[in-house]
């Protein structure tokens, strides 16, 4: 048992956990943030994706102890002031989700993808970038559409602001 401290969704949090505790379980059980999911055992499905120090990582393959001192954003930290993040809004507008279980990981992945690629995303890039996220419901069609729409929206907004 060790005390772990990190910043989660802008708030400093601490919790006691075993050294073997995974980041995803720390987030779900110690912090009660159950939007981050576990869908596999082998680091492939991506339902557990969060951002650590600004980059997407799989919280099921990261120890809470490894994340101590870092800055974590989960799906619960994305919408600001009750307004959906543009990626969340695009998933809703384009029916980019069905059962919702892979959705938090998909959204966190999409935010990271758009951060790295900006408005330069095309369909092939989006599909390649989704290698680490499995969805069983949508056939990805509307997820790809959602991400392209969000990228256009966010890329457009950034250009407009410059």
């Amino acid at each position: 048992m060790a005390k772990i401290t990190m910043t989660v969704n802008g708030r400093q949090v601490s919790g006691q956990c075993d050294d073997r505790t995974l980041l995803v379980h720390f987030i779900r059980e110690n912090l009660g943030l159950t939007g981050t999911h576990v869908g596999c055992d082998t680091s492939q499905c991506g339902t557990c994706v969060v951002h650590m120090d600004g980059k997407s990582v799989k919280s099921c393959s990261t120890l809470a102890a490894q994340a101590a001192g870092s800055d974590i954003t989960t799906i619960e930290g994305l919408a600001a002031n009750g307004e959906l993040h543009p990626v969340q809004a695009a998933f809703k507008a384009n029916h980019g989700l069905q059962c919702g279980f892979c959705t938090p990981g998909m959204v966190m992945t999409a935010v990271d993808m758009i951060r790295r690629h900006g408005g330069q995303l095309d369909e092939a890039t989006v599909r390649a970038e989704l290698e680490g996220n499995i969805c069983r419901c949508t056939g990805y069609h509307n997820i790809v559409k959602s991400i392209l729409a969000a990228a256009a929206e966010m890329g457009g907004a950034r250009v407009a602001a410059e």
Partner: peptide, 19 residues
């Protein structure tokens, strides 16, 4: 019509059995 249930899934507020 865009789905009424989407907001909770998109914001991590879905309530699945393991939650």
């Amino acid at each position: 019509v865009a789905r009424k249930e989407d907001k909770r899934f998109l914001t991590g507020k879905g309530r699945y059995t393991d939650d």
